[in-house]
Design a protein around this nucleic acid. Structure first.
Length: 419
RNA sequence: GUGGCUGUAGCUCAGUCCGGUAGAGCAUCGCGUUGUGGUCGCGAGGGCCGCGGGUUCAAGUCCCGUCAGUCACCCCA
């Protein structure tokens, strides 16, 4: 930008959402809210920042905690952090308020992560999410996944693939991680100087995209082979349930997800129409130990997050959820500078009809041009001749046909013809 | 955090290789219409060529730095 030498820019990795694009955001959020209600979830709103330690419980080996947190010290010396994801704060709220389980809640909130931005990856990004806390019933796993799957479909998305896996219970996972670490150590030559990372979190190597690692990753021991009978039964139940509600899925033995708190079921929806590496539309899983780790009650739980920016990119890529072309139905044109125009607008809007006008003294030509640009279906002109006769001119802006309607009947006329 | 590519009007971009005082389309505004838009015709405004430094008689163009975007790694939504 040539002229922005004195103009502030949004900070790196953040974006403004302006009309008309913002109307798509409202559509997406509204669709999610409606679906959440269908599935029995209530809205939860938690602070945008928490005590640092709340998020630290996500695990020191996760990048989100170890290097991406926006943390700061407030004026009283408290160490706080901007929310990097939705689950921790929600679980904190559960532990604090002890609502009757199962606690089924949804949210729409911005998250903050200090990382290198690129398309579909921002330092402030919005997530729609849901959590169900206080039940280990696999039925709730199924319901969660069905909820999110149905949400994507309701927007018209079709090129979406669901991957699921089971992390097993704590003992399963511990046993498997030990085996996996041995395997990485035996392949130290390939992993090279990334070995410390493999030792810190052996699971994370499994979903690496590095081409030179793919051979050893493909040959790595599979978590599924180490599941306990109980874990395997739980995972089977989830799969059977998904089939019964016609949710298509693929078992992905190397799907591990980014946070350390996951246990048992994990899942991820990938947008196949999204180019590049940022193809995760949404994902989640069980976190049966997190509430207890926060000092709350033992409360097995499952949740997911779904990024709004990526969702809209996927909609663009699949050419669904088109931007609405009009934000108004009626445009009122004032030909005579009559103060009653404001009253007419007030009445039209009072009749639940979207209406707008021009401001400042503009000639008729400009006002009609503005009416056309607004995308309104009808123009209502307040003209001198008709005004004297107690009428207004109503023009259909798509056909250019116009008629006169009695001033006192025009609100009802518009209501009738906009149906 | 590491490496590649990109940055010119409100938007999308040409011009950069080979240095010589800035272009197009769309959008905006005006006129053709005195009470009628969307089409059409004519016209206008709008750029320290991201920012800073260097080379040169001369830099949008070459060199260095920096900021931002983007791609890959990392990681995730």
């Amino acid at each position: 930008m040539a002229s922005d030498r004195d103009v502030f820019q949004a900070p790196k990795g953040t974006r403004d959402v302006l009309p008309p694009d913002s109307s798509r955001w409202m559509e997406v959020i509204g669709a999610f809210a409606g679906r959440a209600e269908l599935y029995g979830f209530g809205l939860v709103m938690t602070p945008i920042f928490e005590h640092y330690e709340v998020f630290a419980r996500l695990g020191q080996s996760t990048d989100v905690v170890s290097k991406e947190m926006y943390d700061f010290v407030d004026k009283a010396g408290r160490r706080l952090a901007l929310r990097p994801e939705g689950t921790a704060g929600t679980v904190r709220a559960y532990a604090q308020h002890r609502p009757t389980p199962p606690w089924k809640v949804w949210y729409c909130a911005p998250n903050f992560r200090y990382e290198a931005p690129q398309e579909g990856r921002y330092r402030q990004h919005w997530q729609l999410g849901a959590e169900a806390i206080g039940s280990d019933d696999p039925q709730i796993d199924i319901e969660m996944i069905d909820f999110l799957d149905g949400f994507y479909r309701s927007l018209g998305l079709r090129q979406v693939k669901l991957l699921i896996n089971s992390m097993g219970d704590a003992e399963t996972r511990q046993r498997y991680v030990a085996v996996l670490l041995d395997y990485w150590l035996s392949n130290a030559a390939t992993l090279g100087d990334e070995m410390p990372r493999a030792q810190l979190n052996p699971l994370r190597i499994l979903d690496s995209k590095r081409p030179d690692w793919q051979v050893i990753i493909a040959a790595a021991p599979k978590l599924g082979d180490y599941l306990s009978d109980a874990s395997a039964a739980q995972f089977d139940a989830v799969q059977a349930g998904l089939r019964s509600v016609d949710v298509a899925f693929e078992v992905a033995p190397r799907l591990v997800r980014g946070f350390d708190y996951y246990t048992a079921t994990v899942f991820e929806f990938q947008g196949l129409a999204l180019g590049g590496a940022q193809n995760a539309l949404g994902g989640g899983g069980r976190y049966d130990k997190l509430s207890a780790e926060m000092g709350g009650p033992q409360a097995p739980a499952i949740g997911f997050g779904s990024g709004i920016e990526r969702l809209l990119l996927a909609c663009d890529a699949e050419a669904v959820l088109p931007q609405s072309t009009s934000s108004t139905d009626v445009f009122v044109i004032d030909a005579i500078g009559e103060p009653d125009v404001a009253k007419l607008l007030h009445e039209i809007r009072g009749g639940d009809v979207r209406a707008d006008r021009s401001y400042g003294s503009k000639n008729l030509k400009k006002q009609w041009a503005a009416a056309s640009r607004s995308g309104a279906r009808f123009g209502v002109m307040y003209g001198e001749r008709e005004w004297a006769e107690g009428n207004v001119v109503v023009k259909d802006l798509s056909t250019a046909q116009q008629i006169e309607v009695a001033r006192l009947q025009v609100v009802q006329w518009l209501r009738d013809h906009l149906k």
